[in-house]
Design a protein around this nucleic acid. Structure first.
Lengths: 134, 134
DNA sequence: CTGCATCCTTTGGGATACTG
DNA sequence: CAGTATCCCAAAGGATGCAG
């Protein structure tokens, strides 16, 4: 890990200068476990612009995505996972027709600085270059 | 995506204030495609401390990892992928016994700011809390 | 509209053994 | 030491259809 206690070395992150001696699991691994997969990070991204309904999220993911729309089953599972993690919140307006709105929750907001850096990295176009989109 | 041209809205990222009108693919998706999976981000993490040999990387991943060591086949594949992406560089000292050293390359270094934010997020312990390690 | 059930394909990752 | 070859398993993701 990034200079954690498990390594026995100085417990200060080279990257941040922060003390990591109390941390056992490399944040990079945890990050992948929590927002890994094809959609979770992108979902946080679109929800950052404001709360969205189930169907709206599905449609939002297409833009800036890779063409194929997410199926309801997958979207449903992703949203449920993320709600259980506390990354997003779910509000069910008991109306007809039904309306359920998802929004960023505290743990999701805690990831925004990371997302910012990802966007900053993406703004250089390096990701499109690497993936052969230019 | 995060306010890209594909959406037809203002092409400025809410997160960074940067103009994203020239970007077609959401960086969050690209990020997952490039360093997704269980090991790549962690590998960048350990290589940030300096160049390492094949076996050293394998052993480094155990610390701060989740117990099970990476198998040679997987490590080999990850390193090959990352070398082809230009994330890391590979130097083969033609010695006996053999010695091959891997180091961060430019495209890998470009990801360090993101990694920093991940570490900063991890320093709060939130990831261990979420994964039930405390 | 929101979501679950079923089934299927693809991908990622692991075990083990072996080679230059 | 630095990998490859083969085989296998588990998880992620997709298609389709149905229900509250």
């Amino acid at each position: 890990m990034e200079r954690g206690i498990a390594e026995g070395g100085p417990a200060v992150s080279l990257l941040t200068g922060l003390d990591m001696s109390h941390i056992r699991l490399c944040p990079a691994i945890a990050f992948n476990k929590i927002v890994g997969g094809r959609y979770k990070l992108h979902i946080l991204c679109v929800l950052n612009r404001g709360p969205l309904r189930f169907g709206e999220i599905g449609r939002s993911l297409v833009k800036g995505g890779l063409g194929t729309p997410i199926t309801p089953r997958i979207l449903s599972r992703e949203l449920k996972d993320m709600t259980e993690w506390g990354l997003i919140s779910r509000k069910d307006y008991a109306t007809v027709p039904r309306k359920v709105e998802y929004a960023l929750a505290d743990r999701g907001k805690a990831l925004l600085p990371i997302l910012s850096e990802i966007v900053r990295w993406g703004a250089t176009g390096m990701h499109e270059e690497m993936l052969g989109l230019r």
